[in-house]
Deep mutational scan, measured.
Amino acid sequence: MQRVNMIMAESPGLITICLLGYLLSAECTVFLDHENANKILNRPKRYNSGKLEEFVQGNLERECMEEKCSFEEAREVFENTERTTEFWKQYVDGDQCESNPCLNGGSCKDDINSYECWCPFGFEGKNCELDVTCNIKNGRCEQFCKNSADNKVVCSCTEGYRLAENQKSCEPAVPFPCGRVSVSQTSKLTRAETVFPDVDYVNSTEAETILDNITQSTQSFNDFTRVVGGEDAKPGQFPWQVVLNGKVDAFCGGSIVNEKWIVTAAHCVETGVKITVVAGEHNIEETEHTEQKRNVIRIIPHHNYNAAINKYNHDIALLELDEPLVLNSYVTPICIADKEYTNIFLKFGSGYVSGWGRVFHKGRSALVLQYLRVPLVDRATCLRSTKFTIYNNMFCAGFHEGGRDSCQGDSGGPHVTEVEGTSFLTGIISWGEECAMKGKYGIYTKVSRYVNWIKEKTKLT
């Protein structure tokens, strides 16, 4: 034993070699072989497995989906700052455009905790909710729209109204504003409101030439003092309507412009014939205590009207009353817009006519005020429907199939267009061939041609 100890002390290297040989010859039971080890760690190889990531292109799944990435790591994937920024906006807080917040056709661009709407022409605001041009839906104005110097929408209202708090709607500024039905039992019968379409306001006024200088022999019209197929109006439903009495009662109609003036057809009036105007009328054979009678003290036909040349060209006249009318729910003026808007309103496509005229061709006159909704007829169809001249200051309205029309005794009465609950004068009943005849239409004086003249002559002093 002493000898062994001496050998170990003198030859430590020998001992180490012996131990190493023993270990190498022993069977290893701690580690699995290569094949079995792979069965336990069965993990798919990654895209760049075996390579240094710093030297390969980034992978979106590896960089940002398996674990949260930084902007720089995302930049490695896209290799483009702009594309990385677009991805980053949604990656950080989701897609803010998912709810489609942009209105009126706006395009949404996502941002971090926010979004941006790219608005089409005519709109602005956070969600493109603000109209900035009158060309689109009248700028959301209830009545009139004008573009300011910086191309912003400025709404306005006709006389007797003021802008509401929203700067879009119009509200009454006087007790009985024009064009409004205020009798409670008839307010439910107000005709369907007309909503502004998209309009090209630059070209809204037709490029028409008034044929002022045409000389033409007097034409022989049949029954051209021209509501057939209409309905009984309720008291106060058309408070701007008046009836004219002269040699015979209810020979023509008219509309209240203001307390002192009536507008009617020029062919209705004769110099030297006494005319009485009755406002607030409903049943011409009954006294309903809503009527107001006034005498006409002055007749002003349009300066281009000449019955000797043509009885229905420039067929418009103004009547001055001896005493002002007292405005109330049964006696209310009709609204008159400017030339541009009167023309736009007419193009809405349908209007209402009213009167006490004959209820059928050569038949009896109506006792109760009649009204009828009539569609506008395109000019080409209008011209083809008659052998008589249709001037540019006239328009056609009615039904091709016949059966409904204005008729004798309705002449001078109103053709009105309702705009968001307020009625505007767009025409004056003038003439036609018979009444409600198939293929024939009622012919009306186009008020847009005469609004400046009306307003100039009827100013209240």
Rank of each mutant, 00 (worst) to 15 (best):
L425N: 01
E67V: 03
E288M: 07
I334T: 01
D110P: 15
G351F: 01
P172E: 05
D322A: 10
L425R: 00
S99P: 12
S204V: 06
D378T: 03
D33Q: 06
M65E: 13
G351H: 11
F31V: 12
E27S: 13
F360I: 14
S148P: 08
L244K: 01
P197W: 04
R358E: 14
I429K: 09
G432E: 13
N113P: 14
Q2F: 11
D223H: 09
G230D: 02
C97K: 03
L383H: 14
S204E: 07
C97F: 02
K440L: 02
E401H: 13
Y441F: 11
L346A: 06
P12N: 05
G50F: 10
E165G: 11
D150T: 09
G272D: 12
S11N: 08
L325F: 11
C119A: 02
E401K: 15
G246E: 04
N213M: 08
Y312L: 07
E142I: 03
E231K: 07
D410R: 13
P44G: 08
C128E: 08
Y201L: 04
N304E: 14
I112Y: 08
V92E: 15
E288A: 07
I214D: 05
T332C: 06
S49E: 15
T209I: 09
E165P: 06
G280K: 02
E76H: 15
I429C: 11
E418M: 15
F144D: 00
F144K: 01
L24G: 02
I344Q: 04
P172I: 04
E270M: 06
F348L: 10
E98I: 09
L60M: 12
Y22S: 05
E72Y: 15
D198L: 07
F224L: 06
C155G: 00
C382G: 02
S114T: 09
K274H: 13
G351D: 01
T158F: 03
C28P: 03
K45I: 14
V199R: 12
A192Y: 10
S411E: 13
R379K: 13
P101R: 13
S187N: 04
F121Y: 07
E456Y: 08
D212V: 11
V377R: 08
Y450A: 02
K68Q: 15
F251P: 06
S184Q: 08
M394Q: 04
T342W: 01
I284N: 09
P235Y: 09
F238W: 07
V296L: 02
Y312A: 10
K438G: 14
K438M: 04
E67H: 12
L318N: 01
I334N: 00
K45E: 13
E285W: 11
P414F: 15
A366Y: 09
G349V: 02
L319F: 03
F345Y: 09
L244D: 00
E73A: 13
D200P: 09
C134M: 03
V202S: 10
R449P: 13
N113Q: 09
T342I: 02
D200N: 07
C102L: 01
Q216S: 07
V374A: 10
R373L: 08
S187W: 06
K457A: 11
K387F: 08
R384I: 11
E66D: 06
L244F: 05
Y312P: 03
C170T: 00
Y371C: 11
K247S: 13
K109Q: 09
P177D: 01
C141Y: 00
V296D: 00
T133I: 12
C268L: 01
A279T: 03
D93P: 15
S182N: 08
P324L: 03
W356R: 15
E73L: 07
E98F: 10
I316W: 01
L346C: 02
K68A: 14
T84D: 09
L103W: 03
S423L: 13
I454T: 01
F71C: 15
Q241K: 06
S107K: 11
T16Y: 07
Q237K: 04
V278Q: 04
E259W: 02
L318T: 01
N151G: 08
Y444F: 11
N258Q: 02
N295A: 06
T225R: 05
H267P: 00
C435V: 03
S406Q: 11
N283A: 10
M437E: 15
